[in-house]
Protein backbone atom coordinates (compact mmCIF):
# COMPACT_ATOMS: atom_id res chain seq x y z
CA UNK A 1 0.00 0.00 0.00
CA UNK A 2 1.15 3.51 -0.83
CA UNK A 3 2.31 5.55 2.20
CA UNK A 4 -0.04 8.31 3.37
CA UNK A 5 1.49 11.50 1.98
CA UNK A 6 1.41 14.71 4.02
CA UNK A 7 2.56 17.88 2.29
CA UNK A 8 4.11 20.77 4.15
CA UNK A 9 3.51 23.75 1.88
CA UNK A 10 6.19 26.46 1.52
CA UNK A 11 7.92 26.32 4.90
CA UNK A 12 10.14 29.28 3.92
CA UNK A 13 7.04 31.46 3.45
CA UNK A 14 4.49 29.88 5.78
CA UNK A 15 6.63 28.60 8.63
CA UNK A 16 7.10 31.47 11.01
CA UNK A 17 5.71 29.82 14.14
CA UNK A 18 7.17 26.34 14.14
CA UNK A 19 4.54 25.24 11.66
CA UNK A 20 6.55 22.21 10.56
CA UNK A 21 5.61 20.79 13.95
CA UNK A 22 2.13 19.92 12.73
CA UNK A 23 3.61 17.91 9.87
CA UNK A 24 5.95 16.00 12.19
CA UNK A 25 3.09 15.28 14.57
CA UNK A 26 0.75 13.97 11.88
CA UNK A 27 3.41 11.73 10.34
CA UNK A 28 4.44 10.34 13.73
CA UNK A 29 0.87 9.71 14.85
CA UNK A 30 0.47 7.51 11.76
CA UNK A 31 3.82 5.77 12.24
CA UNK A 32 3.16 5.14 15.93
CA UNK A 33 0.06 3.23 14.79
CA UNK A 34 2.04 1.24 12.25
CA UNK A 35 0.65 3.14 9.27
CA UNK A 36 3.20 3.99 6.59
CA UNK A 37 3.44 7.76 6.15
CA UNK A 38 5.56 10.13 4.14
CA UNK A 39 6.29 13.83 4.66
CA UNK A 40 6.84 15.94 1.55
CA UNK A 41 8.15 19.47 2.05
CA UNK A 42 7.53 21.70 -0.95
CA UNK A 43 9.06 25.13 -1.64
CA UNK A 44 7.90 27.69 -4.23
CA UNK A 45 9.11 26.60 -7.65
CA UNK A 46 8.75 22.88 -6.78
CA UNK A 47 5.64 21.17 -8.11
CA UNK A 48 3.06 20.39 -5.42
CA UNK A 49 2.03 16.69 -5.38
CA UNK A 50 -1.51 16.54 -6.77
CA UNK A 51 -2.65 13.36 -5.01
CA UNK A 52 -1.46 13.67 -1.41
CA UNK A 53 -3.81 12.95 1.49
CA UNK A 54 -3.26 16.11 3.52
CA UNK A 55 -1.85 19.60 2.86
CA UNK A 56 -0.61 21.94 5.60
CA UNK A 57 -0.46 25.75 5.35
CA UNK A 58 1.20 27.66 8.21
CA UNK A 59 1.78 31.20 9.46
CA UNK A 60 3.72 33.97 7.74
CA UNK A 61 4.11 37.72 7.30
CA UNK A 62 2.17 39.84 4.80
CA UNK A 63 4.58 39.69 1.86
CA UNK A 64 4.97 35.94 2.36
CA UNK A 65 1.19 35.47 2.23
CA UNK A 66 1.01 37.14 -1.17
CA UNK A 67 3.97 35.14 -2.51
CA UNK A 68 2.35 31.92 -1.28
CA UNK A 69 -1.01 32.69 -2.89
CA UNK A 70 0.67 33.52 -6.20
CA UNK A 71 2.82 30.40 -6.16
CA UNK A 72 -0.11 28.12 -5.23
CA UNK A 73 -2.31 29.60 -7.92
CA UNK A 74 0.41 29.22 -10.54
CA UNK A 75 1.00 25.61 -9.48
CA UNK A 76 -2.70 24.76 -9.42
CA UNK A 77 -2.35 21.29 -7.86
CA UNK A 78 -3.82 22.24 -4.50
CA UNK A 79 -7.17 23.08 -6.11
CA UNK A 80 -7.25 19.76 -7.97
CA UNK A 81 -6.32 17.89 -4.82
CA UNK A 82 -9.16 19.55 -2.88
CA UNK A 83 -11.60 18.66 -5.68
CA UNK A 84 -10.40 15.06 -5.40
CA UNK A 85 -11.08 15.02 -1.65
CA UNK A 86 -7.73 15.91 -0.07
CA UNK A 87 -7.74 17.40 3.44
CA UNK A 88 -6.32 20.91 3.96
CA UNK A 89 -5.34 22.16 7.40
CA UNK A 90 -4.46 25.86 7.46
CA UNK A 91 -3.41 27.90 10.50
CA UNK A 92 -3.09 31.63 11.13
CA UNK A 93 -1.85 33.39 7.96
CA UNK A 94 -2.39 30.10 6.13
CA UNK A 95 -6.05 30.17 7.26
CA UNK A 96 -6.41 33.74 5.98
CA UNK A 97 -5.05 32.93 2.51
CA UNK A 98 -7.38 29.95 2.05
CA UNK A 99 -10.30 32.42 2.29
CA UNK A 100 -11.88 34.63 -0.38
CA UNK A 101 -9.84 37.70 0.55
CA UNK A 102 -7.52 39.20 3.17
CA UNK A 103 -5.68 42.49 3.70
CA UNK A 104 -2.00 43.31 3.98
CA UNK A 105 0.22 46.29 4.76
CA UNK A 106 -0.43 49.61 6.45
CA UNK A 107 -2.93 50.62 3.76
CA UNK A 108 -4.97 47.43 4.18
CA UNK A 109 -4.69 46.48 0.52
CA UNK A 110 -7.24 43.76 -0.25
CA UNK A 111 -5.71 40.60 -1.73
CA UNK A 112 -7.69 37.80 -3.32
CA UNK A 113 -7.23 34.49 -1.50
CA UNK A 114 -7.37 30.88 -2.67
CA UNK A 115 -11.14 30.68 -2.22
CA UNK A 116 -11.07 27.27 -0.53
CA UNK A 117 -12.95 28.60 2.49
CA UNK A 118 -15.88 31.02 2.32
CA UNK A 119 -14.30 33.52 4.72
CA UNK A 120 -12.98 37.08 4.43
CA UNK A 121 -10.31 38.67 6.61
CA UNK A 122 -9.86 42.38 7.35
CA UNK A 123 -7.61 44.17 9.85
CA UNK A 124 -9.17 44.05 13.34
CA UNK A 125 -9.54 46.73 16.00
CA UNK A 126 -6.65 45.34 18.02
CA UNK A 127 -4.16 42.58 17.43
CA UNK A 128 -5.18 39.27 19.00
CA UNK A 129 -2.16 37.96 20.93
CA UNK A 130 -2.23 35.31 23.63
CA UNK A 131 -3.50 31.93 24.71
CA UNK A 132 -6.73 30.79 23.10
CA UNK A 133 -9.19 28.26 24.51
CA UNK A 134 -12.05 27.02 22.36
CA UNK A 135 -14.67 24.26 22.58
CA UNK A 136 -14.76 21.97 19.56
CA UNK A 137 -17.68 19.62 19.05
CA UNK A 138 -16.31 16.49 17.46
CA UNK A 139 -18.12 14.56 14.71
CA UNK A 140 -19.34 12.05 17.34
CA UNK A 141 -20.97 14.88 19.30
CA UNK A 142 -18.49 14.92 22.18
CA UNK A 143 -16.74 18.15 23.21
CA UNK A 144 -12.97 18.66 23.20
CA UNK A 145 -11.11 21.76 24.33
CA UNK A 146 -8.70 23.22 21.79
CA UNK A 147 -5.76 25.03 23.36
CA UNK A 148 -3.28 27.16 21.47
CA UNK A 149 -1.58 30.51 21.01
CA UNK A 150 -3.03 33.09 18.65
CA UNK A 151 -1.15 36.07 17.18
CA UNK A 152 -2.99 37.80 14.34
CA UNK A 153 -4.01 41.30 13.27
CA UNK A 154 -6.64 40.17 10.77
CA UNK A 155 -10.21 39.41 11.85
CA UNK A 156 -12.09 36.77 9.90
CA UNK A 157 -15.82 36.65 9.08
CA UNK A 158 -17.47 33.50 7.83
CA UNK A 159 -19.70 33.37 4.74
CA UNK A 160 -22.68 31.04 4.40
CA UNK A 161 -20.73 28.11 2.95
CA UNK A 162 -18.33 27.85 5.91
CA UNK A 163 -19.17 26.94 9.51
CA UNK A 164 -17.12 27.66 12.62
CA UNK A 165 -14.69 24.99 13.82
CA UNK A 166 -15.15 25.80 17.52
CA UNK A 167 -16.61 28.22 20.09
CA UNK A 168 -14.19 30.53 21.92
CA UNK A 169 -14.02 30.34 25.72
CA UNK A 170 -10.96 32.55 26.21
CA UNK A 171 -9.26 34.69 23.57
CA UNK A 172 -10.38 36.34 20.32
CA UNK A 173 -10.55 33.62 17.67
CA UNK A 174 -12.09 34.64 14.34
CA UNK A 175 -13.06 38.20 15.25
CA UNK A 176 -14.33 38.31 18.83
CA UNK A 177 -17.83 37.04 17.93
CA UNK A 178 -17.27 33.83 19.87
CA UNK A 179 -16.40 31.68 16.88
CA UNK A 180 -13.05 30.17 16.09
CA UNK A 181 -11.81 28.76 12.77
CA UNK A 182 -13.78 27.53 9.81
CA UNK A 183 -14.72 24.23 8.19
CA UNK A 184 -15.90 23.72 4.64
CA UNK A 185 -15.97 20.18 3.25
CA UNK A 186 -12.48 18.87 4.01
CA UNK A 187 -10.76 22.24 4.39
CA UNK A 188 -10.19 23.37 7.99
CA UNK A 189 -8.78 26.73 9.04
CA UNK A 190 -7.88 27.86 12.57
CA UNK A 191 -6.08 30.71 14.34
CA UNK A 192 -4.06 28.95 17.09
CA UNK A 193 -0.81 28.82 15.22
CA UNK A 194 2.33 26.81 14.81
CA UNK A 195 2.34 23.40 16.41
CA UNK A 196 -1.31 23.56 17.53
CA UNK A 197 -1.61 19.80 17.01
CA UNK A 198 0.99 19.17 19.74
CA UNK A 199 -1.51 20.34 22.32
CA UNK A 200 -4.57 18.91 20.58
CA UNK A 201 -3.94 15.32 19.52
CA UNK A 202 -7.66 14.74 19.02
CA UNK A 203 -7.69 17.40 16.31
CA UNK A 204 -4.62 15.78 14.72
CA UNK A 205 -6.39 12.42 14.69
CA UNK A 206 -9.56 14.01 13.29
CA UNK A 207 -7.53 15.31 10.32
CA UNK A 208 -6.00 11.88 9.82
CA UNK A 209 -9.38 10.15 10.06
CA UNK A 210 -10.73 12.51 7.39
CA UNK A 211 -7.71 11.87 5.19
CA UNK A 212 -7.79 8.06 5.62
CA UNK A 213 -11.56 7.77 5.77
CA UNK A 214 -11.36 5.38 8.70
CA UNK A 215 -11.53 5.37 12.49
CA UNK A 216 -8.30 5.60 14.51
CA UNK A 217 -8.05 4.49 18.13
CA UNK A 218 -6.60 7.11 20.47
CA UNK A 219 -2.93 6.97 21.47
CA UNK A 220 -2.62 7.39 25.25
CA UNK A 221 0.20 9.83 26.06
CA UNK A 222 0.81 11.04 29.61
CA UNK A 223 3.08 13.89 28.53
CA UNK A 224 0.53 15.34 26.13
CA UNK A 225 -2.07 15.08 28.89
CA UNK A 226 0.40 16.83 31.22
CA UNK A 227 0.89 19.58 28.66
CA UNK A 228 -2.87 20.01 28.17
CA UNK A 229 -3.51 20.13 31.90
CA UNK A 230 -0.75 22.70 32.43
CA UNK A 231 -1.95 24.94 29.57
CA UNK A 232 -5.65 24.71 30.51
CA UNK A 233 -4.82 25.59 34.12
CA UNK A 234 -2.66 28.49 32.95
CA UNK A 235 -5.22 30.05 30.62
CA UNK A 236 -8.02 29.69 33.17
CA UNK A 237 -5.87 31.21 35.90
CA UNK A 238 -4.59 34.15 33.87
CA UNK A 239 -7.60 34.64 31.58
CA UNK A 240 -5.30 34.72 28.56
Amino acid sequence: MKPVEIVLVYQSLLGIYGDQGNAKILVNRLKWRGIDAKLTSVEPGDALPADAALYLLGGGEDAAQVSAVNALREDGSLFNAVDDGAVVFAVCAGYQITGNSFTIGENDDVVEGLGLLDVDTRRGAKRAVGELLARWTRPDGSDYLLTGFENHGGYTRLGSAARPLAQVEIGIGNNGDGTEGAVQDRVIGTYPHGPVLARNPALADHLLELALDRHLDPLPDAEVEGLRAERLAFVRRTGR
Binding site: G15, Y17, G18, D19, Q20, G21, K24, G130, F149, N151, H193, G194, P195, A198
Partner: peptide
Protein backbone atom coordinates in the same frame (compact mmCIF):
# COMPACT_ATOMS: atom_id res chain seq x y z
CA UNK B 1 8.52 35.28 24.77
CA UNK B 2 5.13 33.90 25.79
CA UNK B 3 4.80 31.64 22.78
CA UNK B 4 7.01 28.54 22.62
CA UNK B 5 6.07 27.49 19.08
CA UNK B 6 9.73 28.02 18.20
CA UNK B 7 10.50 24.68 19.91
CA UNK B 8 9.37 23.05 16.67
CA UNK B 9 11.87 25.02 14.56
Amino acid sequence: GKDVSWLWD
